[in-house]
């Protein structure tokens, strides 16, 4: 699946998007965040404050327990500050 990063998450991870292939045991958004955070320093920093991370599956806001099995694209970003 495709992982997309925005704003402060993008800056800390260091890339805008990438193809990821998490193990089968990673079933929902919360587990995917844990898995991503373990991939290196930038990732650990980007996902350090779990409560400040929002996720969207295929461009729809997703809760932590949302399953990721059928997701084509998952985006991660901080709380929104538009308007």
């Amino acid at each position: 699946m495709r992982a997309l990063y925005f704003a402060s998450v993008r800056e800390r991870v260091g890339i805008t998007e990438e193809e990821i292939d998490p193990p089968k045991s990673v079933a929902n958004v919360a587990q995917l965040i844990d898995w991503l955070a373990s991939r290196g320093e930038g990732y650990a920093e980007a996902f350090a404050n779990r409560t400040a991370i929002r996720a969207a599956i295929d461009k729809n806001h997703a809760r932590r327990d949302a399953p990721i099995a059928s997701a084509r694209e998952i985006a991660f970003f901080p709380p929104m500050t538009g308007g």
């Binding site: 925005f6 969207a56 970003f77 901080p78 929104m80 500050t81 538009g82 308007g83």
Partner: peptide
């Protein structure tokens, strides 16, 4: 509209 744009629409200000 404004209240929900701020909390739901994916925009970030730097």
């Amino acid at each position: 509209l404004m209240d929900f744009l701020k909390t739901r629409a994916p925009f970030w200000k730097k």
